[in-house]
Each structure stands twice: as structure tokens, then as C-alpha cells.
Design a protein around this nucleic acid. Structure first.
Lengths: 348, 348
DNA sequence: AACCGGGTGGCAATCGGTTGCCATTAATTG
DNA sequence: CAATTAATGGCAACCGATTGCCACCCGGTT
């Protein structure tokens, strides 16, 4: 058996639709049905070894690339994962994007990047829009209310990052624990008046950090001041710095590094010595935290790892859709990295 | 997929079915044919106003979201654009991603982010893989040889960033012009021995900057030294710094800010005063360039704008596929931002 | 000789839209 | 008033895969 009797016309067809090779072309070339080609390529054990190898060889020869839309349409699997971030310019997300990207590529999946511009409404809208074009989504710092999140998680595989909602898989960076380390560090340096510089109220992590801060302070019989909320950009740092000085605190723990770096700049501008007059501790250890001036003492978060783990959890979930997850939440440890923005409390 | 007529039999299908509204549902509700619904939604002028409005109302009521794969399959348009970057953690790309993302969202398109990990081979492979899943691609700092690039551009709409290949649309940041400004700046401060700290040899921009540097120096009867190539990471900065000192130059112009920041750190480590003993000028003005120590004198590039323009060019090209482009290349101006890493040449 | 069952491969329906072509109807014109 | 034309909407054939179901082949049983 053999050659396709109309063999003469098939190479021509291949040429005509250059670059558009379909399973039908392979089927014609090998003399089997398209369905067999499909199986040979996606469920190799369903077809005889000899046939399979002939098909695979033909596919290679024709430089066949499966059409993802067609595959998605019939199978429902898109091999694409969406990553929603609230602001693509926030360096915190760079690591996350990188980690996610790495892990996805290893699994042969694509990454759809979505910027929600810090708006819950837009987040919800875009989520609905891509709902059917992806196999699952990773929500980094979602601004959505718990209930909405639960609803979405029910109709689409979801993994959140730094956000804990019952019934939704998540990877959480344990910055509360880090905040406690930071407080210990500062208290050991004789700081007694420490302020928390808060980020956006809609941020789950923000509240978690604040709670940890209060708890840690209480252990030493101290009370933490709280200022904010501030936007998470360096420019908000100026306002935050001034407010921080007004509290009379000798040290500030900030919601994130972006804010901390902004504060450092403003303090330098005002001639306030860091850490001589006031200590500043950031959170996340983003790009730049090690070379700003002075280098920032901060909670080092395993951001890239968080991205990788989030993807792993999601893909794992996709493979065992029926079953209930063994682990719903992964907590990643942080540690305090002491640099030069923190030091002994000034003598009063 | 041969689903039994009763529909949802497996739990998975049940979940997947919910919220799954198709044009057929709308057609049934409004009593028209599916094709009319399709037209009402994607080519509104093809259907009567009354019918159209009834259909649109029904679509809204049912919370209809078109299935992108199905649309893509039949129409060939995916409304998705791929952005290929050589390294998602390089801050230079953050701005690019942001700009691209903004402009794409405005046009209702999605962004597929692809990290080529600085490998031409991987770049080519991934490009082939997504070829049919996107309407076009933006290649940021492509490592591909010219010829390959031309071939790809012939079968897929392409816009390159910072890479000029005949016949391929591109947006180029005019850093060569900026390099000249930098040289003028340094020469005016009495620097005579200036070195160029080169980046990856496969980078088109790298060569362009070096040429500009030589030209600018020649104008003053000077000759530029060249060291490198170095990797574009901060860690490469250490090696680069040492090499820079060995040249005896009083100033260095670096391929990019990442490298420059690495150099600054190494110089500080070795106790070399910047700009007292040596001046350093970077390129790009990435996140961090303004708050490193000392703040970096650098060529400010309109990175976000580059991302936006690249997307505009691509979408524009997509809309007028037949016609020849009016403008093949857009050149974006840069300017020198003088901070504290450059100063008068030391007296010898 | 009739039967059984695993391994293979083909048929055809299906995923959800898009679009060329045609029929119908309404509007315009000589 | 008949005839030409434009606007509108339906039919049905795709787009390129996936997959449930069934037929067939073949060796091994009873």
C-alpha cells in the first residue's frame, strides 16, 4: 500500500498553501485519515507504532505546526494562561511575570499578560472577556471582592497570588512573618516609635502586613502608628515621607519597596539622615532596592518562585480537574535583608 | 467532540457549559439566523438598525462574550499580538511592555508575552509556533539574522523595535543621536579619553551606538576606546568596571543602564570616586537610573512611547494589508539627562 | 465452526463563529 | 406600471482540529 494515486497533485497543494500545513495534508501524504493523524500526534498510544512513526515523519517533513485555535475550539484546551497584574510597570510584577513565563514555557503553554490598571471593574471585565480563551488565570494582587472572586473561581481555574480567599487556590508570600522579623530588628536597635506606611486599602496584603505589625509591636508592649493609605508609586513617597516625619516615629515599615524608595528620596531631599535620624524598612526586595541610596533594608520575597509555584499549582489543577486539591494554599517564606537604611534609634 | 445530545453528562462539561452563550442562543432568542447575529455584532452596517439593536440588546442581556478561537478559526483574525523580548526581567522591556499593553487594550487586542531568553534559536522556534495564533508580532531587540527576519516578515506582519532591516517596519530609538550628545557633554567637561562599554555583539543597537560614538569623537579629533562585549546584567558590571579602569579612560559610555549601574556599584566597592575620578554615562534611563548612587547621567529613551508606536504601526499595517506602508521606520528622539555620575575630567 | 476481544483506524459530528452567494422585499426610476 | 437596484437576512460551506462510536482484522478459545 502505498502511494497516493493522485500523488502528483499533493506536493503542489502543499506548495500552494505554503506555511499552512494541516493534518489533512499529512493525512494525504501518508494515506491515512485525518483523525488518525490527530491521534498519532496527540495520543500516540492510540495508534500503531509503524503508522505513528510514518505520520510523525511526514509532519516533520512538512514542518507542521498545529493550529491552536482549531485545537482549542474542539478540545476546549487553549494551552494558554492569563496573568493579571494590577500595574505592569510595578517592578514587583517583573519577577512574577518572569517566574510564570519560565514555568509556562517549560510546559509548552503561552502567557497572556493583562494589566488591570488597578481597577476592580476593569479586572472583572477583562476576566470575563478572556474567560474562554485561556485554560486558567493567575491573579496577582487582585482587587476583586471576595465574593466575585469565588464566583469566578467556580467557573474557571484560578490561582491567586498574595490573596487568600476560601476555596480558591493561592500562593501567598509570608510577608506578615517578615514584618515581625522587621519589628524585632528595629526594636533590638532601640526603636520604640515605629510607624506602618500603608498601601492601597484594597490590597489584601496591606491589611495582613498591618495586622502582623501590630501583633509584633504588642509583644513588646508597643503600639504601632499607621499612616496612609498611599499609592504605590515613588511619587507617593514624598507625601508619605512628610507624613512619616510628622508621626515622630524613629522608624517606618512601608507597604512596599516602591514606596520606601520614594520615601528615601524625599528624606534625602529634606536633608534627613537615614538611618541616623530615621530608619526605613521596605517590603519585597524589588529591583533597585539594593542600589538605591542608602541601600534598602527590606523583606526579601521569593517573587520569581511565587510566579513559578502559581503556574505549577494551576497546571496541576488543570490536570486533575475532578479531584479536590491536596493543598489549597502555599505559603512562601520571606526573610529580612538588612542593608543600610536601618540603624540604631537616634538618642532623644 | 461528539457530545451526547443530552449535553452535560460529565461534571466537567456541566461546569464548562454554564455561562457559555453562543450566537445561536442569541439567534434563538431574537428569532433570526445565526449569521445575522454574527453580522450584527461584527459588521453592524450589514444589518438593519432595528434588527441590529434587538440583537445587541439580547447579546447584552445574555452577557454574550464571543469565542475568540472560533472567530479566529474562520476569519483568520485573532486580535492578539505577540511581543517578543529577549529577557523579561530587563527593566528596559518593562516600559515597552507597558506601552504596548496600553495601546493594545485601547484597540481591544490581547498581548501574548514571549521571552526568548536571548537565544536566536528559541526566538525562531517560538515565532513559528505562534505564527498562526497571532495577527502580528513585535520583536524587541531581535537576535535573528537579517535574512531570517525578512523571511518571517514576509509571512507575518512584523514590527521590530531597535532593529532596522530593509523591508521590515520598525521603530527605532535614536540613541546614536543621544550618544553624540553624550560625547559633546563629556568633551565639554574636558574628557579626552572616553571608552565605549559594549553590550552583546548580536545587538543591532550596540553597533549603532558604537558607530555614533566613533563619529562624534572623530569630530573632536579623538579616538574612542572600546571594551567588551559584556552581558547586559548588573553582575557583568563588575568585570566591565575593572576593564574600564584598565583603559585609563576618564569617562565611559555604556551600552545600557543595567550595565552602567553595575559599573557604579563596582567602582564604589573599589573606592573609585564617580564622577571625581571617572564619569559614567548610561543609556535608556530605566527604572532605577534616577535613584542609584550616584544618580546616573544617561540617555533618556521614550521607551513606553516606543511600545505604543510599535503597536500602532502594527495595527495600522494590519488594517491596510494590501497597501504599501507610508512610513516604514519611525525614529524616536532621545535626550541626555544629566545627573551626578558625570562631571569634569580629573586633572592629570 | 462459531465466538470473543484487544488493537487499529475510519466516519462523521462537533466546537462557534464567518462569509460567499442567493432569495426576498422594498425603494427608485424611466 | 414594469423594471432595475439596493438593502436585508437566510443557507450552507467552510476554518482545522478532536473524539465518540463503530467496523474490521487477527489470533486465540471453546
Amino acid at each position: 500500500m502505498c502511494m497516493n494515486p493522485e500523488g502528483a497533485s499533493s506536493p503542489r497543494a502543499a506548495v500552494r498553501r505554503e506555511g499552512r500545513v494541516t493534518i489533512n495534508d499529512i493525512a494525504a501524504l501518508t494515506g491515512v485519515a485525518a483523525s488518525t493523524v490527530s491521534r498519532a500526534l496527540s495520543r500516540p498510544d492510540r495508534v500503531n507504532r509503524v503508522t505513528r512513526e510514518r505520520i510523525q515523519a511526514a509532519a516533520r517533513e512538512l514542518n507542521y505546526v498545529p493550529n491552536t485555535q482549531a485545537r482549542a475550539l474542539s478540545s476546549g484546551r487553549t494551552e494558554t494562561v492569563a496573568l493579571l497584574v494590577s500595574d505592569a510597570t510595578n517592578p514587583f510584577y517583573f519577577g512574577l511575570i518572569r517566574g510564570a513565563q519560565q514555568q509556562l514555557r517549560a510546559a509548552g503553554h503561552a502567557l497572556l499578560l493583562i494589566d488591570t490598571e488597578d481597577s476592580a471593574e476593569l479586572e472583572n471585565h477583562l476576566l470575563h472577556k478572556v474567560r474562554r480563551s485561556v485554560d486558567g488565570v493567575i491573579l496577582a494582587a487582585s482587587r476583586l471582592p471576595e465574593q466575585t472572586l469565588s464566583v469566578i473561581a467556580a467557573e474557571l481555574p484560578v490561582v491567586t497570588v498574595n490573596r487568600n480567599v476560601p476555596g480558591v487556590r493561592s500562593v501567598v508570600i509570608d510577608s506578615p512573618d517578615g514584618v515581625m522579623q522587621a519589628v524585632e530588628h528595629l526594636v533590638s536597635l532601640d526603636h520604640r516609635a515605629i510607624a506602618y506606611v500603608a498601601g492601597p486599602p484594597s490590597s489584601w496584603a496591606n491589611e495582613a502586613r498591618w495586622r502582623a505589625m501590630r501583633t509584633a509591636m504588642a509583644r513588646h508592649g508597643l503600639t504601632a502608628a499607621r499612616i496612609g493609605p498611599f499609592g504605590v508609586s515613588r511619587s507617593s513617597g514624598s507625601v508619605a515621607a512628610d507624613a512619616l516625619l510628622n508621626t515622630g516615629a524613629t522608624a517606618g515599615v512601608t507597604f512596599n519597596d516602591l514606596l520606601a524608595i520614594g520615601i528615601l528620596r524625599r528624606l534625602a531631599e529634606r536633608g534627613v539622615d537615614v538611618p541616623g535620624e530615621i530608619s526605613v524598612v521596605g517590603c519585597d526586595d524589588i529591583f533597585g532596592a539594593d542600589f538605591c541610596s542608602p541601600p534598602l533594608t527590606t523583606l526579601t520575597a521569593p517573587i520569581e518562585q511565587a510566579g513559578r509555584v502559581a503556574v505549577s499549582m494551576l497546571l496541576d489543577h488543570l490536570e486533575h480537574l475532578g479531584e479536590t486539591a491536596s493543598r489549597q494554599t502555599v505559603l512562601l517564606p520571606t526573610h529580612l535583608t538588612i542593608r543600610q537604611s536601618s540603624g540604631p534609634a537616634p538618642r532623644r
